[in-house]
């Protein structure tokens, strides 16, 4: 149903009013988000140094060529992908378990649901600081717990070793975000009508069979949306790494965003740093495309 165009008392046509009301938000987005993306693309084709922005020259794709031959770039790409895949997979499994638990009626459920939000709500730098102290090689409680339980026979430097540092970051990330995943999945579970389970029980389907034939297919769209959010967030990981390891030891925990940040604001190389940022942007774009594809296939 279309409504009348002219509105009596003001005389402003409805569509003009619409554009006026959207304008401030749209202007912000265009100026502070869209324009800078294009500018990053153009910066990535220059050799701009932050101290001398006026001396920047156009150098075509040189920065990209340099990156493709740069082992540090490839190791950052590997670290980012490893971190993203492992932490999102763990978050999905743990989040699912939490959602199934929170979906059952039990005493104290309200408290559990509230507690689950807290890690999500605090700043990442704060949670990273908390974990950094717990991982400490001498005074950290994690060494204490593992030693008491007999998993290790002496204290280890978890953050100081190239084999464990990235895992430390993954665990801290899973702690902070699995509960959030759990809440999103819980909301999805709650939209599944109870009759479906009753019908499945009448048909003699076991609990496990019900999970695969009723729960999983019906929660798939919610799960994909939750996965998009989490995958993109994990792929952009920065605060956590910055605080926990600073990218070290060596470059063993350096992610792409961390590498871009270092190049931009420590080496003050805006050309090369922008090129890394562009590649991150392209990666994020591709990840979104894959998920959107999966989602639209779901809806068919």
């Amino acid at each position: 149903m279309r409504r009348h165009r002219g509105i009596r008392s003001t005389g402003i046509p409805e569509d003009v009013l619409g554009y006026l009301m959207v304008a401030p938000a749209l202007l912000c987005i265009l100026m502070i988000a869209i324009y800078p993306v294009f500018r990053t693309f153009s910066l990535s084709m220059t050799d701009m140094k932050m101290q001398f922005p006026d001396m920047a020259k156009y150098i075509g794709l040189n920065n990209y060529v340099k990156l493709l031959q740069d082992s540090r770039f490839w190791s950052a790409t590997y670290n980012t992908l490893f971190f993203t895949v492992v932490s999102v997979a763990m978050e999905l499994v743990i989040g699912f378990a939490m959602a199934l638990i929170m979906n059952m009626p039990f005493k104290g459920r309200g408290l559990v649901r509230a507690a689950v939000l807290v890690p999500w709500a605090i700043p990442t730098t704060v949670s990273a600081t908390m974990w950094k102290f717990m991982y400490h090689d001498q005074f950290g409680v994690i060494n204490d717990i593992l030693l008491r339980m007999g998993f290790i026979d002496q204290y280890r430097s978890w953050l100081g070793s190239t084999s464990s540092a990235l895992w430390c970051a993954i665990i801290a990330d899973v702690w902070k975000t699995a509960p959030f995943m759990g809440l999103l999945l819980l909301a999805g579970l709650q939209t599944i009508p109870g009759e479906l389970y009753e019908a499945a029980t009448v048909d003699g389907a076991s609990r496990i069979k019900q999970f695969f034939s009723v729960t999983l297919p019906l929660i798939m769209p919610t799960m994909l949306v939750a996965l998009i959010f989490r995958t993109l967030d994990a792929f952009r990981v920065f605060d956590l790494i910055f605080v926990l390891t600073g990218g070290g030891p060596g470059n063993s925990t350096e992610t792409l965003t961390m590498y871009a940040y270092t190049t931009l604001f420590r080496n003050l190389d805006f050309g090369l740093g922008s090129a890394i940022a562009v590649l991150i942007f392209i990666f994020v774009f591709l990840i979104s495309l894959v998920y959107i594809n999966l989602l639209s296939r779901q809806n068919d």
């Binding site: 959207v22 938000a25 749209l26 987005i29 502070i32 988000a33 869209i34 324009y35 800078p36 993306v37 500018r39 990053t40 910066l43 932050m50 922005p53 993109l232 792929f235 952009r236 920065f238 965003t257 871009a260 940040y261 931009l264 805006f270 740093g273 922008s274 890394i276 940022a277 562009v278 991150i280 942007f281 994020v284 979104s288």
Partner: peptide
């Protein structure tokens, strides 16, 4: 407009930080 907003929400901060810094 809604689609534009949605895609902007997926922008990585690092992809706009250098020009914004200069601005």
């Amino acid at each position: 407009i809604l689609a534009l907003a949605l895609s902007v929400s997926m922008f990585p901060g690092i992809a706009i930080v250098s020009p914004l810094f200069l601005m």
